[in-house]
Amino acid sequence: MKTFDLNVDPVRMVNQELHDSPVGGFSINSPEGRHCIACGVDAEIDVTIDGHVGYYCAGMNKLASIQIAGNAGPGVAENMMSGSVRIKGNASQYAGASAHGGTLIIEGDASSRCGISMKGADIIVMGSVGHMSAFMAQSGRLVICGDAGDYLGDSIYEADIYILGETGELGVDCIEKKMTAEHRDSLSDLLIANKIDRSAKEFRRYGSARKLYNFNIDHADDY
């Protein structure tokens, strides 16, 4: 395990080391809200960040397993491709924005636009999410164990949203959908794999009504 202290080691140097390491474990201390920590990692390494991080922590992560023992600023794990990112605290706006793959777990709450434009990742929020979450979400799963703010799933494409708590006003073209056995099984697998102590049976599923897929003047009020 190699340890860095961001009060001493610049973010640039630490990121370069993470980029140059094909294997290993790394501990990063004193993040103190710094931006872009551990972004662009492209190897099966383990990174633990002890404290709060600023913008774009673990951005575009590939393969790595990254733990944040604190809160995360905007855009955590944005455009993640694979691997996993786990946040012990809360996450700010745009968590997992446009993420293509991998798993993002937020143990606290996530702010607005969680999973915006997501493209295949799994995002699990153990608390609640803010407004406009899963906006234009294309594919993947957003699992919310708490409540969701207004406009959940606005203009959603083929992503699935699973939620335990309350939803506010749903976004345009987002509707509650049938929870089939297939959906329940796959959600159950996801929860078990990530050690989330919830039963898939309790969740409701939301997705696209597909009314906006091709322009129709009779749906113009929705645009």
């Binding site: 774009y56 905007p74 855009g75 944005e78 706006q93 745009y94 924005a97 446009s98 293509h100 636009r113 915006i116 434009s117 493209k119 295949g120 906006f135 234009m136 294309q138 594919s139 203009s155 494409y157 083929e158 906006l212 897929y213 091709n214 322009f215």
Partner: peptide
């Protein structure tokens, strides 16, 4: 990462 044959409307603002 979109279904075929739909009208694709991409966003005017960056997501993050």
């Amino acid at each position: 990462d979109l279904p075929q044959d739909i009208d694709q409307r991409s966003a005017c603002r960056h997501p993050d």
